[in-house]
Nucleic acid binder design. Structure first.
Length: 595
RNA sequence: GGUCCCGUAGCUCAGCUGGAUAGAGCAUCUGCCUUCUAAGCAGAGGGUCCCAGGUUCGAGUCCUGGCGGGAUCACCA
């Protein structure tokens, strides 16, 4: 890496010239801004204290040192306190010749480390997937790919919350008002059907609460003492007691939901290496709670409920088991964490879960440590921000929840419409066209979500459809298609005779700037892995595509007369196309050969 | 109220460990399809980087204090 080379030489320069070692943070190397001449820039201000000379003179001395000690540095210029270095075209030529034909450019060698477990999606079986889940799934899937690309082994896992009071609510409502309806009979996706009964429960329960309040009961009390709630709790108890009828109904309805989820996942291109179900981890969780009691780090209240006191850590008491012995969220998460640890002994356990659960994960780690699990330190919570609408959160009560399937349908229609308006695909078969619209619509949706820093709360406006122009997935896809067209034509014309360029090739400005961006790619993918941010890759792909389009408009490629230039430009195009494709693949976005 | 996150153009977002004149896209306006794909390119306008202090040669970036927004502090998950 040239940056590192310059940095090391800079440290040597200071040592030689001023007889002092300096802390590495004073040695600052950055890319030269395009308006100045040069490739890399050393900021000399931090060095003045050491050199005890003015900025110009210091820069001049270091510049001379660079030129005579580093072959790659051919010349320099000084503007204010900035020392701009020009890197030899030999270096860029070598970079190009070494990498342009690699199929794995950007991929890092395998490390010998325990795997990283990435959990994402984690749906409840009482609600269909919505836009929030889409963000979760896309971030999780992509970050898993990015970490894999960085050389780490990765296990993608899903944790389905298939048990608990909420599932019982759907089941109860279905029993009471469902008339034995099935997804097949109603022609509804299973997750939608079950979700509907969850809503029905809520509605009927509210009516009951209202009635109770009218008899003079306090709202708080009323909300926990409706007949429906009692029945749901009773059902949960029977479920935990392995009641056959309840278990059968539960399996049936969950299976409906899974079928629905699977179709949504597969459409989105989301997959998992392993799926955990809370129904099979909560018992282990209960066992851990018992252990905690024996260790004396948990305590039991008079009503039989079990708690962990975290007041020494600045937090509250946390419930671990209800008085009736049934488990809560934390119980099952303890069990799941343990099970994963046993399965993988991971070097890192990443939970992709919304930032509304930050508190939960702080507590989870603390509790695990209290019962002696030192590996709790390997848990990291990738807490992404919520997706909001222009007027705030999505609310199911107000019907503003953006359903995942509906949104993908919308996007598909827009992609189809846009494409038909452009009228470029009249020769495609119906299947080919539809597969293209799929690629484009998903590209638009995924890029829209992933280009935003995961940490940030993001806004989605359902009134404006997601764009297909500008800083979008389709723009990048288009650039790829454009490149492929060039490459196809060059092959048809047998234009590329020689793949590599000579070491004294003189670059056009745009050729150089594309080369520099390509040069950054491996580093960007590493940064994305360490900072857990697919957004870095997304923004990178956009920058590369934008730069390429400018290049495309500025210079001739196939029509260039000078054969070396023409060959280089074609190869550079191909290299760019490949890198765009690779970067987009890390985001789970396909790129078409033509569009 | 406690804890945490956020505040950059009309809107949606970039801005790496502090560095040169704060960048894109959308929207608005103006050009460019008889030349390799116009889902493109070029150009114009649009900014108190929430406010006030501080650290520094240098602050959108770091610190403190405000203001504004959000999350969370459930026998929901």
């Amino acid at each position: 890496m040239i940056e590192q080379l310059v940095l090391d030489t800079l440290l040597n320069a200071v040592k030689e010239l001023y007889k002092q070692d300096i802390p590495s943070k004073l040695a600052q190397v950055q890319k030269t801004r395009p308006e100045f001449e040069g490739d890399l820039t050393i900021v000399v201000f931090p060095l003045l204290r050491t050199s005890k000379k003015g900025p110009e003179q210091t820069a001049d001395e270091i510049g001379n040192f660079m030129v005579s000690n580093l072959n790659e540095v051919t010349s320099f210029n000084i503007i204010k306190g900035f020392l701009n270095l020009s890197i030899s075209s030999k270096y860029w030529v070598k970079f190009f010749n070494d990498n342009s034909k690699l199929s794995t450019f950007g991929k890092h060698p395998k490390k010998k480390l325990a795997p990283v477990v990435v959990e994402y999606s984690s749906p409840n079986t009482n609600k269909p997937l919505h836009l929030g889940h889409i963000r979760n799934n896309l971030i999780g899937w992509s970050i898993a790919e990015i970490i894999k690309n960085s050389g780490q082994e990765v296990a993608k896992v899903n944790l389905v919350n298939d048990r608990g009071i909420h599932i019982c609510k759907s089941m109860l409502a279905w029993q009471k008002w469902g008339n034995d309806v099935t997804p097949k009979a109603s022609n509804l996706k299973g997750d939608k059907l079950v979700g509907d009964y969850y809503v029905i429960f809520d509605k009927k329960n509210k009516e009951e609460i209202k009635a109770l309040v009218e008899t003079g009961m306090e709202e708080d009390e009323a909300s926990t003492s409706t007949a429906l709630m009692r029945e749901a709790k009773e059902m949960l108890k029977r479920w935990e007691d392995n009641d056959t009828t309840i278990r059968e109904l539960w399996s049936t309805m969950n299976q409906w939901v899974y079928n629905g989820f699977d179709s949504t996942y597969s459409r989105m291109g989301i997959d998992f290496d392993k799926v955990y179900y809370e129904s099979s981890t909560y018992l282990l969780g209960k066992k851990l709670v018992d252990q905690g009691l024996e260790l004396g780090v948990f305590f039991k209240k008079e009503d039989g409920s079990v708690w962990c006191d975290l007041s020494d850590d600045g937090l509250d008491e946390k419930l671990l088991l209800r008085a009736d012995g049934t488990s809560v969220y934390m119980t099952q998460d303890l069990g799941t964490a343990q099970l994963r640890y046993d399965d993988y002994h991971p070097s890192k356990l990443i939970y992709v879960v919304g930032n509304e659960q930050n508190y939960h994960f702080d507590v989870l780690k603390l509790i695990l440590k209290k019962i002696g699990k030192s590996w709790a330190d390997n848990i990291s919570h990738l807490n992404y921000g919520m997706v909001e609408l222009p007027h705030g959160k999505m609310k199911s009560r107000e019907g503003t929840v953006v359903d995942a399937d509906d949104l993908m349908d919308e996007m598909y229609k827009t992609a189809k419409q846009t494409s038909e308006d452009l009228g470029k695909f009249d020769d495609l078969s119906i299947e080919e066209a539809s597969s293209l619209y799929n690629v484009l619509s998903l590209g638009a949706l995924k890029y829209f979500i992933l280009k935003v820093d995961p940490k940030r709360t993001m806004t989605f406006n359902p009134a404006e459809s997601i764009d297909f122009n500008g800083n979008t997935g389709p723009f990048i896809q288009y650039t790829h298609a454009r490149i492929r067209s060039i490459v196809r034509k060059s092959k048809a014309l047998n234009l590329v005779l020689d793949d590599s360029i000579s070491h004294d090739y003189v670059f056009e400005t745009k050729e150089k700037s594309i080369l520099k961006i390509l040069h950054d790619f491996p580093e960007i993918t590493l940064q994305a892995a360490t900072s857990l941010s697919p957004a870095l890759v997304a923004n990178y792909a956009y920058e590369l595509a934008r730069e390429y389009n400018q290049f495309y408009h500025e210079v001739m490629i196939l029509k260039e007369i000078d054969s070396e230039k023409r060959n280089f430009r074609i190869s550079l195009s191909e290299f760019t196309g490949k890198t765009i494709k690779y970067a987009m693949a890390l985001l789970g976005i396909q790129v078409p050969e033509r569009m």
